[in-house]
Computed example of a mutant assay.
Amino acid sequence: MAAYLMNRVFVSSLMLSVMIGSLNAQVADIKAICGKAKNQSFCSSYMKSNPKTSGADLPTLANITFGSAQTSASEGFNRIQSLVKAATNPTLKKAYTSCVQHYKSAISSLNDAKQSLASGDGPGLNIKVSAAMEGPTTCEEDMANFKVDTSTMYNSGDFQNICGIVLVISNMM
């Protein structure tokens, strides 16, 4: 009987804590975030296209955009990896293989950034997401150095833009 009462008190106090915590959560100012983004129109379109962003607080918005950045990096990695497998031209294969390594590095940086996001470490998140953004940029530079037609490549623009939103949010955390 005493254990039952203790459990009820514990559950009640836990629920009260959750309710108080949710009352303190403020809706993120998406207009302010997009106003600071490098590509403001992309940010606005991204936020409007994702119903989960409406009414989200800053930590939730950080998680949503960060998840999108991870998805975008994985899609880029998979696309370039398939190009490596299909390439018969040695120069193309070498260029694509270089890009695979850069995307692996970006994904690794994002995995490190996940810990900063989970702990609410805005500056750490910013540094690690900035590092992740270098991978696709370096890939594009390598492709230009190899004088390879990039029309078959994965467009890293969305990844860069989504990461840019994460950077803005990290500065607000």
Rank of each mutant, 00 (worst) to 15 (best):
G21A: 09
A86Y: 03
N24C: 11
S74L: 10
K38P: 01
A69E: 07
T53F: 04
T150E: 05
V129A: 00
G157Y: 02
C99I: 09
E75G: 11
S116N: 12
E140S: 15
C43T: 00
K104E: 14
P136Y: 05
N155K: 14
M133G: 15
V11L: 13
S82K: 13
I165Y: 03
A131G: 00
S82V: 03
A144E: 12
S22V: 13
N24I: 12
A32I: 04
F66Q: 05
C99H: 05
K114D: 14
L5P: 01
S12Y: 04
S116G: 05
R79G: 08
L58C: 05
K36C: 04
K52G: 06
N111L: 13
R8L: 15
L83K: 08
I30F: 07
E134V: 15
S74Q: 15
Q160M: 08
P90T: 11
T137R: 07
M1E: 14
A118L: 15
G124T: 10
R8I: 12
K128S: 08
S12K: 01
V129W: 06
I80H: 02
T60H: 01
S45W: 00
Q70A: 06
N111E: 15
P90H: 06
M19H: 09
S156P: 02
P59L: 03
A37D: 01
F66I: 00
S74P: 00
R8W: 06
L125Y: 01
V148D: 06
A118G: 14
M19F: 10
A95N: 09
Q26C: 07
Q81Y: 10
Q160H: 12
K85Q: 14
P59F: 03
V11M: 07
A86E: 11
L23R: 07
E75L: 12
I162C: 02
M143Y: 11
T71W: 03
S156D: 13
A69G: 00
A87F: 06
D112P: 10
M1N: 11
M153A: 09
Y46L: 07
Y4V: 14
S17V: 06
G35E: 05
K38L: 10
K93G: 02
A86W: 12
K93A: 05
A113W: 11
A73V: 14
V148I: 14
G135H: 06
S151H: 06
S119T: 15
T65K: 00
S72I: 01
V27D: 04
V129H: 03
I64G: 03
S105D: 12
M133Q: 15
L61T: 03
S68E: 15
K85V: 14
A118Q: 11
Q81M: 08
L117Q: 11
A87M: 02
F159Y: 13
R8V: 13
N111A: 15
M47Y: 01
S108L: 13
F159S: 05
G120V: 05
K114I: 13
G164K: 05
I162V: 05
A144W: 08
M15S: 09
G122K: 13
A62W: 04
T137L: 10
S49I: 02
